[in-house]
Design a protein around this nucleic acid. Structure first.
Length: 290
DNA sequence: AATATGTTCAACCGCCATGAC
DNA sequence: CGTCATGGCGGTTGAACATAT
């Protein structure tokens, strides 16, 4: 709480309200800002008649009342961006939020905690571990990409795409982040790189997926911080597709076309058709990742 | 229908950086 | 240079709601 030290004034002496904001308070805050603009939050709190701290007013405005706040569920593109940027920058939520127009750092943080960390807990992996990040990139990211209408790479890759993409829409940024030649590769295929289009439509793509030994399907961390991709593919389009759980319903053809290894299929088959065991999945991941 | 458990997300807290004095 | 006020950030909490038993 700010303003604890120093001057004792009338505003501090009066009882401050806490908890959920009322419609009246919201109206008061919106009208005040309409007349006086944002900023100087403590002054705002004192002069507006709100019995709130400046911090509370600022938070309410930035996270809820500001006109350009976007409502509703995060799009696949936005989720993809969160995963990708979090892997680059860690929990720099405000920085990540700069690349998702209309989304607040609080919302992104909540998404990460409720959705992403939940998966980590279920897998019994630390959310900040390399294993988990690889799992995100190998299972989750491809699914989100599938649900976007991109990537259809058309632009020249950037060395640091995010740093140059602040004015882009999430979809633009997804496309930039998903530049195949810089971000997607496999350890054992130095000359082979998946393009986004190939990933999206593996069964119809003209991609030349080479025959590789099962053991070669091993994701590696891209030293540039780009996407490290595994071709596991889900046909699912419901919300479960956001789960880290491996695909249950994708056709054998699509797996074959996408180059899915028999090791992977064997693992998946061994897990069963009804429920996934997180322990088994984690064991498979460990084996699979070497 | 009642209760327990899990999930979501708005709001708060404490710390830190910055700038004014 | 030290003190203080302020704003911003990331972590955490808890009420409301949803789902399971």
């Amino acid at each position: 709480m700010s303003g604890k030290r120093g001057s004792s004034n009338q505003h501090e002496d009066m009882e401050l309200r806490r908890g959920p904001w009322t419609l009246e308070e919201d109206t008061l805050l919106v009208h005040y800002i309409a007349f006086h603009g944002e900023g100087r939050w403590n002054l705002l709190a004192r002069c507006s008649g709100l019995k709130r701290t400046g911090k509370s007013c600022r938070l309410r405005w930035l996270n809820y009342l500001k006109p350009d706040i976007k409502r509703g569920n995060l799009s696949p593109e936005e989720k993809f961006l969160i995963l990708e940027l979090q892997s680059k920058w860690g929990n720099r939520w405000s920085r990540i939020a700069q690349y998702l127009p209309g989304r607040t750092d609080n919302e992104i943080k909540n998404y990460w905690r409720t959705q992403v960390q939940k998966q980590a807990r279920q897998l019994k992996i630390a959310a900040d571990s390399t294993v988990f990040r690889d799992a995100v990139r190998c299972y989750w990211t491809p699914r989100l990409l599938e649900q976007t209408s991109c990537p259809q790479p058309t632009q020249t890759p950037h060395a640091d795409t995010a740093a140059t993409a602040i004015d882009h829409s999430p979809r633009d940024l997804v496309q930039e982040l998903f530049q195949p030649s810089t971000h997607c590769r496999f350890e054992s295929r130095s000359s082979y790189e998946l393009s986004g289009a190939e990933v999206r439509n593996p069964s119809t793509s003209s991609a030349q997926v080479p025959d590789l030994p099962e053991s070669s399907w091993k994701p590696v961390v891209d030293e540039l911080g780009g996407i490290v991709f595994s071709p596991f593919h889900s046909g699912s389009s419901d919300d479960n597709a956001y789960s880290l759980l491996p695909p249950m319903t994708a056709s054998a053809d699509s797996y074959a076309a996408s180059g899915c290894s028999t090791t992977y299929n064997n693992c998946m088959n061994s897990v069963g058709d009804s429920l996934w065991s997180m322990d088994e999945l984690y064991g498979m991941l460990k084996t699979w990742m070497g």
